Amino acid sequence: MGENDGRLFPPLSPMTARTVDRTPRAAGLAYEAKWDGYRVLLFARADAPHLQSRRGTDLGPGFPDILRAAAELGEEAVFDGELVVIEDGAVDFAALQARAQRTGPRSAAAAAAHPAHFIAFDLLQLGDEVTMARPYRERRALLEEVFTRRDLQPPWALCPMTTDPDRAGEWLDPAWAAVGVEGMVVKGLGQPYRPGERGWRKLRARATAEAVVGAVTGPVTAPDVLLLGRYDAQGELRMVAQSAPVTRTLRRRLGPLLTPAGPGHPWAEARFHSGWGTRDILEHRCVSPEHVVEFEADVAFDEGRWRHPVQARRIRPELHPEEIPHFPAGAA
Rank of each mutant, 00 (worst) to 15 (best):
H320A: 14
A17G: 08
A48S: 15
L124C: 03
V287D: 08
D122W: 05
P260A: 04
D298S: 08
A30T: 00
A44L: 01
D232M: 09
E210P: 12
D92Q: 07
Q153K: 13
T131E: 11
F118N: 00
A141H: 09
A331W: 01
R279G: 04
R55E: 10
V20M: 07
F301R: 10
A110M: 04
E144W: 11
T221A: 12
Y38Q: 05
P24W: 11
R279L: 05
R305F: 01
G255F: 01
I119S: 00
A17I: 06
P260D: 02
T259E: 15
R140K: 07
P325H: 14
T221C: 01
A111G: 10
A48W: 12
A244Q: 14
K187F: 00
G235T: 10
A95Y: 00
L83P: 02
R271P: 01
S107R: 03
L228I: 03
A46L: 07
A113F: 05
L143F: 09
L282W: 01
S107Q: 03
P289C: 13
A33R: 12
A69L: 03
R139D: 06
T148L: 14
G199I: 05
T57Q: 08
L228T: 02
T259Q: 15
R253Y: 00
R253I: 00
R137E: 09
P325S: 14
T163M: 13
G89A: 08
H117L: 15
L254W: 06
Q52E: 14
R149L: 13
D88R: 14
C159K: 02
P256Y: 07
P154L: 10
R238K: 15
F301C: 02
A175Y: 02
G199Q: 13
A244D: 09
A120M: 02
K202R: 15
K187N: 06
V240C: 12
P223K: 04
L142Q: 15
A168C: 04
D92K: 03
L226V: 06
L96R: 01
F9N: 06
A157I: 05
R150T: 08
P64C: 01
Q52P: 02
E236C: 09
E323A: 12
S107E: 00
N4C: 12
P192G: 12
L73K: 05
H326D: 13
V216E: 02
I86Y: 01
A178I: 04
V287W: 04
M132C: 13
R99A: 07
G180M: 00
P317L: 04
L228V: 04
E76P: 09
L96T: 00
E76D: 13
D92A: 11
P309K: 11
Q125Y: 05
R313H: 06
A46S: 14
D36S: 13
G229S: 08
V299H: 11
T103M: 02
P309S: 07
L319D: 10
A33L: 08
G28Y: 03
P135T: 07
A71W: 04
A178E: 15
A270I: 05
L96D: 00
E197T: 11
D280S: 11
V130Y: 00
A209M: 06
W176L: 02
L8H: 00
A69P: 02
R279T: 09
G188H: 13
A17Q: 08
